[in-house]
Amino acid sequence: MSASEVTAARPGLPLAGLGRRAGWWVVRYGPAALVLAAFVLLWNWYAGVAPGEGRLLPTPAQVVTALGDDWNIIQPALLVTLGSAGRGLAYGAAVAAAFAVLAVAVPPLRRPIARQLTIVFCLPLAAIAPLLFLVLELPGPHVALAAISVVFPIYISLAQGLTARHEEWEDLRAVTGGGRGRYFCSVQIPASTRELLVAARIALPTAVLGTTLAEYFGGARGIGVLMINSLAQLNAPRAYALGIVITLVCALSFALVELVARALPWTEELTR
């Protein structure tokens, strides 16, 4: 008896199908929804008993209200922050790509480059930020901090992808008498798409957080500036609303990379 005969014998098939579908949704998203609900309830309870009468910790409802009421202030700030983060990401990616190509072209430089970049990456961004304000005009520091924070993760992923050995493809290159430059462009670069996606997953949120942090230290506009001001004015609901906005932006960037990855299904076949 085939599978279709089994299901056909069951009465109320459409509903059963719907039930199975709903079951799938519960299994897939249920745990996450439960955790989120528990978190919001706990937050709501603690905001009620915490000291400060809501000035330090607003309730979730207050935060959502602030998000709606202040959207006309938050939205332009968000655009400024995203603009700086985007420019920083572009500069950082360019620098990382240049280092990665250098590491490919001159293998003895691989270790020193990785070491130097690790040291730069390990410097606390908060320590660099004030220095940047001394040497750069606004919004230069916001852009620079985003760039600095993404160079290392992008470089590590790119260098790994671009120096990976694909022995059979290299044999193929050798047998066809092909040049290394052509091989690099036609094989090595597309073959590092997986690593490129990993780099994007890390770098996109990191750039936004880097810019926000730089805006903490000074600036005319931006989410970080607005956050500092809100805290100074004891406007906790707005400060928390800004935190939620930044979190959502980072989650969105993750989803965006996921969408790109799905459009390139063959990246899954590059595991070897």
């Binding site: 059979e168 193929l172 066809t176 008498g177 092909g178 036609s186 094989v187 076949e269």
Partner: peptide, 25 residues
């Protein structure tokens, strides 16, 4: 040369995989 494990490029179509050897050369 043809290899045991076909060694095709997963991001290329059949057509472009075949053309690849000319491109390399």
């Amino acid at each position: 040369m043809a290899f045991q494990d076909s060694a095709l490029l997963p991001w290329r179509s059949v057509q472009r995989n075949i053309a690849f050897a000319r491109e390399m050369a």
